[in-house]
Design a protein around this nucleic acid. Structure first.
Lengths: 125, 125
DNA sequence: CTAAAACCTGACGCTAACGTCAGAGGCAAG
DNA sequence: CTTGCCTCTGACGTTAGCGTCAGGTTTTAG
């Protein structure tokens, strides 16, 4: 009879998290300061992370790129962690979704404008 | 025989430009400082703009929203003003176009991810 | 054991597009 | 003329996500 004890207990240090996610060590510390990432501490005080910290940091980067602030990301974290999310969080989630959709539409319009200009400047050098 | 003399000579002041374009007066002064907008001056020193300053400022806003800096916008202005644009400017134009396209693709992927999360949180409240 | 590499905690710096305040002049109406 | 609104020139403040440096401890490689 086997007991599942949190799969893999190997903890990694901040440098490995940073390299794995493609960000700076400073950035990872910043995420902790913003309440996005909680780390255990070794007896000497070094931060210790589980491996899933790496995809988590990648996810933060994706959200930042989409225009969310660290505060907003922190507020929405429960939507990933577990399945227990309240109505307010789900509303924020949908609001961000709409904001991103609107931004895509704006960018697409801008892209079309730029394409017109490019067509003109290419025919009238 | 009629002579076309710059259509309408009526000049407007900075407040009207700002209201017309939906930005602050401070923003319009900032654009001038960044070399985006040139204004005549009244004898008393007040800025005087032609009406086409309003769509121009709107255009600046569109470019800012697309992630261009004021420096880049200034460098690309010749692509609109006249038809005399050199190879370097056309290359920058295409580079910005590609950057925007890549950003749209990223945002679309993020949107898809968010939609998955929304579907999950909506079925597992 | 020792040197290099990695980690720690502050804490100041940076950038971009403005916001905001201070102090002063300009301009049409009544 | 004066009330009120608009404009002017500085010049410092703001925000967010880090970069960077200082000065010190810890871990790892040889």
């Amino acid at each position: 009879m086997t007991v599942t004890v949190a799969a893999d207990e190997r903890l990694i240090r901040i440098g490995e998290v940073a390299r794995g996610a493609g960000v700076s060590v400073r950035a990872v510390r910043y995420y902790e300061q913003q309440g996005l990432l909680i780390a255990e501490r070794s007896p000497s005080g070094q931060r210790l992370y589980r491996q899933d910290a790496i995809p988590l940091v990648r996810f933060f980067q994706e959200m930042f790129a989409a225009g969310l602030t660290s505060r907003r990301i922190a507020e929405l974290l429960p939507c990933w962690d577990a399945g227990h999310t309240d109505a307010e969080q789900r509303a924020m989630l949908r609001a961000e979704r709409e904001r991103i959709q609107a931004k895509i539409d704006d960018l697409q319009a801008t892209l079309d404008h730029l394409d017109e200009v490019i067509a003109i400047t290419d025919t009238h050098p």
